[in-house]
Design a protein around this nucleic acid. Structure first.
Length: 293
DNA sequence: CTTACACCCTGCTCGC
DNA sequence: TGCGAGCAGGGTGTAA
């Protein structure tokens, strides 16, 4: 699944296909994904015009013209494909159609320009719901979400406040969407490596007794921002056939310094360490024991 | 309030 | 080639 950069890549890919378009038909092929679709889901989408697409953490927010917001989480394997056929195809885009996962295509939206936007999700860990725009901030999916890593809210002081006294590892804390929202296993590993911080360090140890952030927190924040921005610029990461809305692939996986690189030499200049894989909270952590302290 | 773990579901890869 | 084990970017629910 997609972490923040992949979700952002999907959002950017869907935006030109959806914004300004009206949904004329909804083909909903099963009653649920991870959770049941909301009541009258297809009917409530049909006839709506899409006003804009936002993102919060790992959620895509499709704002509709009746004040409702289609909230989408891609889970681990959620994927969108945009298809155009016949005279209605858009020149220059969607040149070749990547092989798609028709067997797991659970929802198809037909738009008023002839395009079809399909959602496929093999594992069905993804989900969708409809929430009115005004209720969004207080909605249970959103009210506990932490700082947006690329928004203005992420400061050393704010992160220090969130991590203060935490006994969990910094790895676990950064994975916790209530602290920072949008990071996942890959980008937490990558950010910690860039910041030279051991994933096993206790989260609270990055905060001084008085509650002020230690210098390492500034490095960590800079590392988080940098790795996310670079990944978005590269179109996200492509693992196990994750594809963006154009059926294309991100490239950032080639730039991983530690993720999936167990046994390889650390790429930090001057470091002669070897990347190790450990398990924290039932998930793999990749890091360099030599330069991450 | 923590942390730890099972679980959700399917597919892929690896070792035998 | 087949088969079971282990693993996978997500999150929730439960128990201690």
């Amino acid at each position: 699944m997609p972490e923040l950069p992949e979700v952002e890549t999907v959002r950017l890919g869907l935006t030109p296909a959806l914004v300004g378009r009206r949904i004329i038909k909804v083909d909903q092929r099963r009653p649920d994904l991870r959770f049941p679709f909301p009541k009258d889901f297809a009917r409530r989408l049909t006839g709506r015009r899409v006003e804009r697409l936002d993102r919060r953490a790992k959620y895509i927010l499709v704002h509709l013209d009746d004040g409702e917001v289609l909230v989408i989480h891609l889970g681990m394997t959620g994927r969108f494909t945009v298809r155009r056929d016949g005279a209605l195809s858009t020149p220059g885009t969607f040149e070749h159609e990547a092989p798609t996962d028709t067997a797991h295509e659970h929802l198809v939206l037909k738009l008023d320009d002839g395009a079809r936007v399909a959602y496929a999700d093999a594992r069905r860990f993804g989900y969708m719901t409809l929430v009115s725009e005004t209720e969004l901030p207080a909605h249970k999916l959103f009210r506990h979400l932490g700082l947006e890593p690329l928004g203005g809210g992420l400061s050393a002081a704010a992160l220090a406040e969130a991590l203060k006294g935490k006994k969990a590892s910094i790895k676990a804390a950064l994975m916790d969407q209530r602290m920072i929202a949008g990071l996942g296993n890959i980008y937490v590993c990558e950010a910690l490596h860039r910041a030279g911080l051991s994933p096993k360090k206790l989260a609270g140890s990055l905060v001084m007794p008085g509650g002020r952030p230690r210098a390492a927190l500034d490095r960590l924040i800079a590392a988080i921002r940098a790795v996310l921005l670079e990944a978005i610029r590269a179109g996200g990461s492509t693992l196990r056939d994750f594809q963006n809305a154009e059926g294309g692939s991100g490239l950032f996986q080639h730039d991983f310094a530690v993720y999936g690189r167990e046994g390889e030499r650390c790429v930090r200049p001057g470091c002669r360490g070897t990347i190790r894989r450990i398990v924290q909270g039932a998930r793999s952590t990749f890091y360099c024991p030599t330069c991450q302290r």
